[in-house]
Nucleic acid binder design. Structure first.
Lengths: 150, 150
DNA sequence: GGCTATTAGTTTGTACACAAAGTAAGTTAC
DNA sequence: GTAACTTACTTTGTGTACAAACTAATAGCC
């Protein structure tokens, strides 16, 4: 019988994809922090802004589908974005249950500044663009696999 | 001048590695949730248990280095693991500043049950083992890149 | 129309995650 | 030997995440 060594141990920390994923996610978000701080944004708030710049107006439900976040997370987050002056929240007149989240002029203006962020991150990572694109594709496949049966 | 389309927009949601990373991380953690629930563990707590099974005893500082978590996160998390009866916390007699986190018999016993988790996750993902290993390697390179200058 | 079920958001409670301030033990400098 | 500094951990405050309970609006059914 094979002994339990680093190489064969199913539970070895450095073999867990979930461990690499959590740390990678937190590490990369950490790179964004100093770039987002001047705008008063956190990383999840930045993702909401990306979604709005691309698809405004959006309801909470639509944002939740795009970002895979549940309404209990988005609801207070959107209030903070409103308090920052970047978005406007109002009920959809066609369906008073739904919220119509739109950008304020300040929120729209922020987009030009934000264009500088992705290149700055790529530069700071100092990785091959090809490798980053492969990684991105692999992550999207992983997401699809993980959510298929969920 | 090229128009800003989905393909050229630097800020398009579906081009952001950070977006894919956050969602992938949360999605995979979501797969663990039902498997960890019988033990009363959250995913970060499970990672701490993995670290302890491999390297017990560990101080808060050492756990923080292994899992890239700061002491302000680990301190209350370890108290919860202690309340669950899986770990024991005591001061290191050689250096009273440091904590020696060790496994209780229940914590040690849990390991056998936990062995079933990684294969269950891989099965549920239904992905090629090769692809998962490539992804793991790519994530580790990303982590190294992200933390180099941090 | 009016009853029921569904849907969209909000609220509450628990647990990360991390910055910043606080405390106590150990180390260094003199 | 003690004052100054460093280190290890704890505590506090803010902001995700997510489950579960709640509220209000709409849709379906008779």
């Amino acid at each position: 019988m094979e002994p339990v060594t680093e190489a064969t141990d199913l539970l070895a920390l450095d073999r867990q994809v979930c461990f690499a994923l959590s740390i990678a996610s937190r590490s990369v978000i950490g790179l964004y922090r100093p770039l987002l701080q001047p705008f008063g944004l956190t990383h999840p708030q930045y993702l909401v802004m990306l979604a709005l710049w691309q698809h405004e107006p959006l309801s909470v439900k639509e944002l939740g589908e795009l970002l895979q976040l549940d309404p209990g997370t988005l609801s207070p987050l959107l209030k903070r974005l409103e308090a920052l002056g970047y978005v406007h929240r109002e009920r959809n007149s066609k369906d008073e249950r739904a919220l119509a989240v739109t950008l304020t002029p300040a929120g729209r203006q922020l987009r030009a500044e934000a264009e500088k962020i992705p290149p700055a991150i790529v530069a700071r990572l100092g990785m091959d663009l090809d490798e980053l694109q492969d990684l991105h594709a692999a992550l999207m496949r992983l997401i699809a696999s993980a959510r298929r049966d969920a």
